[in-house]
């Protein structure tokens, strides 16, 4: 039990709770996972910045009691890149939704991964635009109903892990809000990892995705989440057709030249001191 003996609340900005999120939303599980990871690592909150984008997940920086930067839609990684380069000793965690990271912010996701800059991305993937009321996302499973695909999505689905791997991320993991105890472990690994790290958390949006696709309540969604991930049989054939199977676990964990380090070396070659010892 990761929580045992940990003061997780010290990393939560309790005065702004409850969150804006709907009852049953998976985002709270992920935030608790993040706060738990911070508690496990005993981080100094003044030396951490949580950078968020826009959308449900983008609100995360308000709830985590570290430095916080709630930026513009899709651009969180670009803000975080500048921030990290300016003060490389800061721990920078970027929380983004699937639309935020892979639609409007897809280009920054690819290029931050390519640079292998020491940032940790926590990508909340609920397969839908929640904040605006349930529109189709690039991660919406094929055939799913959303308010902009009422007869079923015909667009092919992005796979975060495949993109992150192809773009050059050096730590890539996927977990789910069903696997609550795994979330802080993956986040801790990602933060500790010296390079660009991506933790995708498959998450439930019972309010929009669940209702529109008649999956049921939050518990049903969590069971569905469990069943669509590898190792467990998908119970309903039509759902398998609809959603496919996704693997969870750590897909890559390898060291490569990290960007602030490479930049520090570049400065040294031309006589400059970047300040990284």
């Amino acid at each position: 039990m990761p929580r045992l003996g940990l003061d997780v609340d010290q990393y939560l900005r309790t005065q702004v709770l409850p969150t804006v999120w709907c009852p049953g939303c998976g985002n709270g599980n992920t935030v608790e996972g993040l706060a738990t990871a911070f508690a496990r690592m005993d981080v100094d909150p003044t030396q951490v910045v949580v950078v968020g984008g826009i959308g449900c997940s983008g609100r995360t920086p308000f709830y985590v009691k570290t430095n916080a930067m709630h930026t513009t839609h899709g651009r969180a990684l670009a803000y975080a890149t500048g921030l990290k380069m300016a003060q490389p000793k800061l721990t920078v965690v970027v929380t983004m939704g699937d639309g935020d990271a892979l639609a409007i912010g897809g280009n920054h996701f690819i290029h931050a991964a390519r640079r292998n800059i020491d940032l940790t991305v926590i990508l909340y993937n609920n397969g839908i635009y929640g904040m605006t009321g349930g529109q189709e996302a690039p991660t919406t499973p094929l055939g799913s109903r959303t308010t902009t695909s009422l007869t079923g999505s015909i667009e092919r689905t992005f796979d975060t892990v495949e993109i992150a791997l192809a773009a050059g991320a050096t730590y890539v993991a996927r977990t789910t809000t069903f696997d609550m105890q795994e979330i802080p472990l993956r986040i801790e690994e990602a933060i500790t990892h010296p390079g660009f790290a991506v933790v995708e958390v498959l998450s439930q949006c019972p309010t929009y995705y669940g209702r529109l696709n008649q999956i049921g309540d939050t518990t049903d969604m969590l069971v569905w989440e469990r069943d669509r991930t590898e190792g467990l049989p998908v119970k309903m054939a039509n759902r398998q057709e609809l959603l496919g199977e996704l693997k969870t676990g750590v897909f890559r964990n390898e060291k490569s030249v990290e960007f602030t380090k490479a930049y520090s070396d570049l400065c040294a070659r031309v006589g400059g001191s970047y300040g990284l010892s």
Partner: peptide
Amino acid sequence: LSAIAAVIGAAWGG
């Protein structure tokens, strides 16, 4: 888009 975002992020990095 990212150029100005990085500039703003950097300013908050000092």
